[in-house]
Each structure stands twice: as C-alpha cells, then as structure tokens.
C-alpha cells in the first residue's frame, strides 16, 4: 500500500527491553476517517506500539509515516499531525482547564485569537465550558478524562491516538468519550484506539488488530476477523405457528448453517446475517410462521481473541 495514501503507516515495529521483546514486528495502516483498534489484554504491547507511533519511544527497528512524513523521536513536522490521548491522565492539576489547553496549544505553535477560539471550541466539545476556569484538581475523574482527550484534539490533528482512554471511567463519561470518538472519526480524523474492552473495539473500530505478546495475530473488520476463525451470526426468531416448517424452508438457503426450533421460536447460525436476514425472514414467513421479534447476535471479538490466542481478553 502507498504510504502517502494513509494517514498512518507502520511497518515492522520492534522494541525490546533487554531480553524481553515487547513488540515483535507490528505493522498496520490507518486511512483518513478510519478508526483502527488495537485490541489485546494488558501487556500485549499496545502502549509500547502507540509510544513508538507517537515518537515517544525509540524503536529498535521499523518505520512510521504520518501523513507521508517519516516519524522518529526527534521528528517535528510529523508530530504536528498527531494528537495523543495517553492512558494515564496528562494534565496539570494546579492549572485550570483553559490554562491547560492554552499551554499545550502554544506548544503546538498556536497563538492569539486562533488559539483562544480553538480553546473555546474544544471546551464546548468536551463539555467543560462552564468549568473552564476551575483548577482541574477540583474535577471529577470523568471531567479530567474529557480534558485529557480535549488536549489531544486541540491542534486539530489528522491522526488521533487514544491509549485506553476509558480505563477507570464511569459509564456515563465512558459513553461520552466513545461518542466523541465516533464524531471525530465521522469528521474525517484517523483514529488509533487501543483497548482491552471488546465492546469498545466492536462499537468504534472500522478495523481491528488483535494484538498479543507483541504481535498482531490477525487484522481486519470485525466480520473479516469472525470469518477468519469460522464463526457465524446467530439469529433468534420469536415465532408462532409451524416453526418446524419454517426450519425446513431455511434448508434451501446455503448461508444458513444450522437451524432448529428452540424455546418456542427458531434459532439458526448464519454466515452473514446482515446479508441474508431479509431472505431468511421471507422464507420463514412463507412457511406460515408468525414472527414477533428478531434477535441477531453476531460473534464477538472476545471469541475471536480466544480462538487466536487460546486465552480470554481479560486474562
């Protein structure tokens, strides 16, 4: 793939600490408007990877290009394109939210009315306009997290790197953070999102890299990953009438791998529920079965991770 076509291009990143190889040849790319997830348990190498991608950490080998610009620990131009939201809070508790934003804005060469305007915008985005003049030591954990994200967005980077931004966050703030990421991605920002929460990766990421022991075990869209390990969607129909006839009618569809009558309804395994759902419902209805509800359960990344690594995400 042409590196200039991607916002982020990483090739064969390696990093060892003594004899311990933390990252062993990780490579991936992220396009404009795409959210890429690095999903793996603690200690998988996510933070080491993101540290190399941001130029915080000197890599042993490999290449990183941001918007076509090569990135090293000393790069300046490439770093302008990156917004970092570190895993741990990186804000000054003795400064107000506004002062924190202004300080980091100046480090990104912003100044004057442009900086002021952008600070106001970011405060609005993260919902801290009313508390902008308070010292952040007085903030709740969720407010601090939001500011932590705001600092990464301030200079309108083309690439936003979020390293487990929802760890230790209450459900309400977590949801707000996820919504913000969705919005930013929708606005065209490329996002690298590391997490060990399968639900977040499934909700946010266009593509996911399953990382474990410093290696990307598999990469692709959720569906590609699921298919990679041979898993199927599960469809449950709450039904009345001749359910057995409905099951028989489904036998003519190749995408339906398995079907049966269970708990007063029909349950089946399907290759691609999105693609075949309408046809399935047509077949079942055509057999005289009345359908009161449809429940589609796609195989999750947890099961993919388990399949690929032999252990659960939270091990």
């Amino acid at each position: 793939m042409d590196s200039r076509a991607s916002v982020l291009e990483c090739r064969d990143l390696k990093k060892s600490y003594g004899d311990n190889a933390a990252v062993k040849g990780v490579g991936f790319h992220i396009a404009e408007g795409e959210t890429y997830g690095l999903l793996g348990p603690n200690g998988a190498g996510k933070t080491t990877t993101i540290s190399m991608v941001t130029g915080l950490l000197e890599r042993d080998s490999g290449e990183v290009f941001v918007n076509g610009l090569p990135l090293t620990t000393t790069s300046i131009d490439a770093k302008r394109e990156i917004g970092l939201v570190p895993q741990d809070l990186a804000i000054y508790p003795d400064l107000t939210a506004r002062e924190n934003l202004i300080f980091f804005g100046k480090l990104y060469e912003m100044s004057g009315s442009d900086l002021k305007k952008r600070v106001d915008e970011v405060l609005e985005i993260i919902g801290l306009t009313d508390r902008a003049g308070d010292r952040t030591e007085e903030y709740s954990g969720g407010m601090k997290r939001r500011l932590n994200i705001g600092l990464g967005l301030l200079h309108q980077p083309r690439l936003l790197l979020l390293d487990e931004p929802t760890v230790g966050v209450d459900p309400q703030s977590r949801n707000a953070i996820l919504e913000s990421v969705e919005q930013l991605s929708g606005e065209g920002m490329a996002v690298l999102y590391t997490t060990h929460y399968m639900e977040e990766a499934e909700r946010l990421c266009d593509r996911v890299g399953i990382i474990d022991l410093g290696e990307i075990k598999a990469e692709g869209t959720r569906r590609e990953l699921v298919q990679l390990v041979g898993q199927h969607d599960r469809i449950r129909l709450q039904a009345t009438g001749p359910c057995a006839a409905g099951v028989e009618a489904l036998a003519s569809l190749a995408a339906v791998r398995e079907a049966g009558v269970r708990d007063g309804g029909i349950e089946m395994l399907v290759d691609n529920a999105d693609r075949w759902l309408a046809e399935i419902l047509g077949k079942v209805s055509g057999a005289g079965v009345g359908i009161s509800s449809v429940d589609v359960e796609e195989p999750n990344l947890e099961s993919v991770f388990l399949h690929l690594t032999g252990r659960a995400l939270r091990d």
Binding site: S51, G55, T73, I76, R80, P86, A90, P93, E109
Partner: peptide, 15 residues
C-alpha cells in the same frame, strides 16, 4: 510522575 512528560515529548519540539 504526573504523566505530562509524555505529552510534552509528543509535542512538535526538540526535547
């Protein structure tokens, strides 16, 4: 210790 050094080092400036 506060975690802000990483953010400083990620900024577009010489260390």
């Amino acid at each position: 210790q506060a975690g802000t050094l990483g953010r400083l080092m990620a900024a577009p400036m010489r260390r």
